[in-house]
């Protein structure tokens, strides 16, 4: 059984490689095309990473897939949108560069706050009462929470997408040879990297981060150390939601719109990225997300299929990973406690 699956995998990979080679030779895209697609992939990957980290953090501690995480991100996107309207109202976006930068930073912060509020509310209302229940139960609750968030937003704000106005300052980009680099792309990638670094430092260097890692390993022994496990879990949701909120705002600027179901597909993609890297593993989520971003940006052209089908590629990756390496690229083999 096992070898059959593996053989199948090798055949699929060979077919893919053959297809990529054939298309590459036939179409002959210029190098600049591949470079700019790679840059696109990194930008997208950066946003996926911000969202993927939330899945992985919560999974690491509760062994639960927070299925509503993509929608928590969408809430951040909406909060950011309204913050942006506010800054537009008071004229900050027409002001000097300093005001524009301030407005943008505050938009991201607002998105983070919105998502954090949504995240900790879900933890309190939808997940905490179910702690200790069989693992399927909180998962179902999370799916319910996801639908609740989406349709509440639909009910309150309607189906019309809200437009994210890019200030003139960050519109456009520059040319390096034949490659066009948009400013938003650079900003999104840098903000993602900075937030990822911040998260890494919090988890690895701070006292609370140490407590998080202890709780992830063994809750009752962590409690024996005087750690308030519930508080650490809330803190984990805060971190994950804050990153997602920032991701929601960045995605808003990237796609220039946000609507009630804006979180669904990116949420699934980020989940894929987290699984690809090894769910529960923080560097894994980052690597998996960047890889997925690249696969999505380069895949359609490399395979010679229309870009509308890029989602198929992403989710094929999920299926392949689940079949061949469920623990992900950087994941450890699950201990019996976790399995």
């Amino acid at each position: 059984m096992r070898w059959l699956v593996r053989l199948l995998g090798v055949v699929v990979l060979l077919l893919l490689a053959w297809r990529v080679a054939a298309v590459g030779l036939a179409e002959g895209y210029p190098a600049s095309f591949w470079i700019s697609q790679t840059l696109n992939g990194l930008v997208l990957g950066g946003v996926y990473a911000l969202i993927a980290l939330g899945y992985t953090l919560v999974y690491g501690i509760l062994l639960m897939i927070n299925f509503a995480h993509g929608d928590v991100m969408m809430i951040g996107g909406f909060t950011g949108f309204f913050a942006l309207q506010l800054w537009i109202g008071v004229g900050w976006l027409d002001g000097s560069a300093l005001w524009v930068v301030l407005a943008l930073v505050l938009t991201v912060v607002a998105g983070m706050l919105g998502s954090v509020l949504a995240g900790i509310t879900l933890e309190r209302v939808a997940y905490r009462p179910l702690r200790g229940a069989p693992r399927l139960v909180p998962l179902i609750s999370a799916i319910g929470a996801s639908l609740f968030l989406q349709y509440s937003v639909l009910l309150i704000f309607g189906v019309t997408p809200r437009a994210y106005t890019r200030p003139a300052l960050i519109e456009g980009g520059f040319r390096a040879g034949d490659v066009f680099v948009p400013y938003t792309g650079i900003i999104i990638f840098i903000v993602s990297l900075v937030l990822m670094l911040a998260l890494y430092l919090i988890v690895q260097r701070s006292k609370l981060g140490r407590a998080m890692r202890a709780v992830a390993e063994d809750k009752s022994t962590a409690a024996l150390m005087g750690i308030n496990v519930d508080q650490v879990i809330v803190f984990t949701f805060i971190l994950g939601s804050a990153l997602a909120g920032a991701g929601g705002v960045l995605l808003g600027f990237h796609n220039t719109v946000v609507k009630f179901n804006s979180g669904f597909i990116p949420g699934l993609k980020a989940f894929t990225a987290a699984v690809l890297g090894g769910i529960g593993n923080i560097p894994g989520a980052m690597v998996g997300a960047l890889l997925l971003g690249l696969i999505e940006a380069l895949g359609p052209s490399a395979l010679g299929i229309p870009t509308e089908y890029k989602d198929i590629i992403a989710f094929s990756v999920l299926v392949l990973i689940l079949i061949f390496r469920p623990s992900g690229l950087l994941g450890e083999v699950l201990s019996e406690k976790k399995a």
Binding site: R213, A214, E217, D218, G226
Partner: peptide, 19 residues
């Protein structure tokens, strides 16, 4: 013993002084 296996020895000791 219930040592935190993925944390370093030093981190384990520091967790003892968490409070």
């Amino acid at each position: 013993r219930r040592i935190f296996a993925r944390l370093t020895v030093e981190e384990n000791l520091e967790l003892g002084a968490f409070t």
